[in-house]
Design a protein around this nucleic acid. Structure first.
Lengths: 231, 231
DNA sequence: ACTGGCCGTCACAAAACCGTCATCCGCCCC
DNA sequence: GGGGCGGATGACGGTTTTGTGACGGCCAGT
């Protein structure tokens, strides 16, 4: 390894920043901290880090603005940190070009894990964060928050949309109800896993054609999956 | 699953502790409770749990001290419980190496959900390579829970799928019924080994072509095996 | 305050699955 | 070829998992 990968932490809260830096350094990264947006931008430009850890809530210059600004001039991967948790916000961040999104409270370990994941992913040019998910006759446009089945646009309430997205991120893969709860509604969500059943039912009414589920399939004893290519 | 994941609850308040334990056990964990920090440490050392649920407010030995102490000697994931809610405390906990943080009052269900999330995260550090088992005309995709024979997807109920996977993990090797029970349904499973016969029969109907078993072969007086390379 | 949409849970019915038993069949060895 | 043991099979009842309609709470727009 020629040199350690560089991570720039843009975070105004001193304690958070210190913790992240500590963990990053312990995990084999070179880390620097910027206290505010302006400083962040300037360090980012001069130090050329391999990744940015960017708090959205910043004094003066908003985190998203920085995200946008940097995107205009470089390809640095960006991992957003935020207290907010809605799919809405997540989307806004990702749409601005962020590579991933972690909601507070986060565990430093998890953040480090994600940093690693992003770096791995960007080194080997794989598929970028895609804006459009497809699987068979299903097509989801994230930026429009629009789902289309067999060309027909179906209007979905938030929960159902999130659930569908969670499934569509890995078509064919089987998810347990718990996994779905976590992926669709976030960790720490308090609700029975049977709730998923209800949403599945409502979803089916909107996306399935005949009485027989062809897209959103039940896997007995395990959970649900989205049909991919085979029978 | 060789055995249930172990969770150690360190909590002085009897009611909380009992509730957590109840929920954990109902959710498929083995749970033990320690009433104070000292006991917590000693059980943690001797019982080697897979995760610690640690109340911060403890008599005598403070929860954070335990956290620190354990971190020095092991990697057990730790989930903190606390009445306090300040960012200050939260950070202090996470900085000390905790993996997540739940503030009281908490819903037991949420706690269990987080426990699961942490365990999943620590077990499978990253999106694991999609496991695919092959043997002759048989192909099993674990993530999709899909078995294909001669290109044709066969739909298998949980028990049959598990059995097939157990066999497919070592094609050609002969397993006794007991071994199969253990590998497919886990140890501690209560059932006759003749049950395997039933599943084998049902499996054969789905994966064999003619009346003569070619894939799932009987080894008289011993058990069953999956054909590997010959006829 | 009212209406409508959305959500989480519940209760009940339906469906799928499982384990066991009794019986019949086939393999192995004498 | 026959005896004996292990395996195959079909049936059945009980259990578990899902599907679904209903209900009450909640929130936002009117």
């Amino acid at each position: 390894m020629p040199q350690l990968p560089r991570v720039l932490v843009v975070e105004d809260e001193a304690k958070s920043a210190a913790t992240l830096r500590l963990y990053l350094e312990k995990s084999g990264f070179e880390a620097r901290v910027a206290r505010d947006g302006a400083e962040g931008l300037s360090i980012a430009r001069s130090w050329s880090p391999d990744l940015l850890l960017l708090d959205i809530m910043l004094p003066e210059v908003d985190g998203l603005s920085i995200c946008r600004a940097l995107r205009a001039e470089s390809d640095v991967p960006i991992l957003l940190l935020s207290a907010r948790t809605t799919e809405e916000d997540r989307l806004r961040g990702l749409r601005l070009g962020a590579d991933d999104y972690v909601t507070k409270p986060f565990s430093p370990r998890e953040v480090v894990a994600r940093v690693r994941a992003i770096l791995r992913r960007t080194k080997a040019p794989e598929e970028r964060e895609d804006e459009i998910l497809r699987s068979l006759s299903l097509e989801i446009t994230m930026s429009n928050r629009e789902a289309r089945v067999r060309g027909r646009v179906v209007d979905l309430p938030p929960a159902e949309f999130s659930l569908l997205v969670a499934l569509a991120r890995s078509p064919g893969r089987v998810f347990s109800r718990e996994e779905l709860v976590e992926r669709a509604f976030g960790p720490g969500y308090d609700g029975l896993d049977r709730t998923i059943d209800a949403h599945v039912m409502r979803l089916r009414r909107k996306i399935e054609q005949e009485g027989h589920p062809a897209l959103l399939v039940t896997v007995f004893g395990v959970g649900y999956k989205l049909a991919d290519s085979n029978t």
